[in-house]
């Protein structure tokens, strides 16, 4: 088994909602992330999927130390981040990097590409400028740009090329884990495959761990080894990619997969159209937060919150009905298979 890079243990992030102006008091909280646990191994891509507002970006921000978790802990190579010495913390920041969605706003327009990619090296590694320039040129080559591009400004590049620059910057400190927040959704359709293939190649070459945040399920299926589905701040299902797409168990995962449009006109699957919209995280429904939209909901679902249970090896589902629903689908499948 490969090394576990990062482990999140029941991470929570609650944003306070205040009322009043001078004597502001907290009246309630938005539970953006509410008890999320997962692990990422070396060389593995874990995807977080879910609709907008489900807490996937907040989770990523906590891992990047851009938000403090309200509760729970993050373990990096087995060490709790809260117990790290300042020097170890600096090392953690260097080993966890990020690539963001929009390459138009994530690169400083006033810096040359060479300085953008070299900046992490200047800050973290005491190297002579000659050596930095050397490394920058090497990184440019690696992401498929020309070494002499280091003299240009970001506006001189197209979207795909800018995303390559952002990837080169993330790679400069030889990180162990890269958080990819919607890395291709701002790019043109014909450019997306280039960037996804580049990310896969780099992962292979360096054994990088990826935490991929995406809403496009086809992208997720292509890029990731394991998938965690989030709904209203909780992970409702985790499984190996292939397992999740072929045997989704949570009703929300099923609806999500069936709502993703098929790429061919002839493949007509059953279509699950969810009623209503995602409830506000300010006032999540009691019990299982998905029950108001779930067609299988029982009275139990509106009372007790389901705990994730392992259905098959590595396949965790947080649903009271996981077992019964699986049996039901198996029965229908075998009925269909019969001649």
């Amino acid at each position: 088994m490969t090394e576990v890079l990062l482990e999140a243990q029941s991470l929570k992030k609650h944003f306070p909602v205040t009322a009043g102006f001078i004597l502001a008091r907290t009246v309630s909280s938005i539970k953006a992330v509410d008890g999320v646990s997962f692990i990422i191994r070396q060389g593995e891509t874990l995807s977080l999927v879910g609709e907008s507002g489900c807490g996937k970006t907040t989770t990523a921000k906590m891992i990047l130390l851009l938000e403090d978790p309200t509760m729970g802990s993050i373990l990096f190579r087995g060490k709790d981040l809260q117990r790290l010495t300042p020097a170890e913390m600096k090392e953690y920041r260097a080993s966890v990097q990020a690539v963001f969605q929009d390459p138009w706003s994530s690169l400083n327009p006033r810096l040359r590409v060479g300085s953008i990619i070299g900046e992490p090296l200047v800050v973290n590694r005491a190297l002579p400028s000659k050596a930095i320039q050397e490394q920058v040129r090497e990184l440019l080559l690696q992401v498929g740009l020309r070494p002499d591009h280091d003299d240009l400004y970001p506006h001189e590049f197209s979207g795909g090329q800018r995303q390559r620059i952002a990837i080169a910057r993330a790679l400069s400190l030889k990180p162990a884990l890269i958080v990819l927040d919607e890395p291709v959704s701002a790019l043109d359709v014909s450019i997306r495959a280039q960037i996804m293939n580049l990310l896969k190649d780099l992962q292979h070459q360096y054994g990088l761990g990826y935490l991929l945040i995406a809403h496009n399920l086809a992208t997720v299926r292509y890029m990731s080894h394991r998938v965690a589905v989030m709904y209203l701040g909780k992970i409702v299902e985790t499984a190996q990619t292939k397992q999740l797409f072929s045997h989704p168990q949570h009703p929300y995962t099923r609806a999500l997969i069936s709502a993703a449009l098929r790429s061919r006109p002839d493949t007509q699957d059953e279509e699950i159209v969810l009623p209503g919209e995602v409830p506000s995280p300010l006032d999540p429904p009691p019990g299982c937060s998905f029950h108001p939209r779930c067609s299988n909901a029982l009275p139990l679902c509106s009372k007790t919150t389901p705990v994730p249970r392992e259905q098959e090896r590595g396949h965790w589902v947080a649903c009271h009905l996981a077992e019964t629903l699986t049996v039901a689908t198996r029965a229908t499948i075998s009925a269909e298979e019969r001649p």
Partner: peptide, 14 residues
């Protein structure tokens, strides 16, 4: 070059 949901592909055409 578009990934699809129905099957696992190892490498996309780019």
């Amino acid at each position: 070059s578009i990934p699809n949901l129905e099957e696992q592909v190892d490498r996309l055409y780019s």
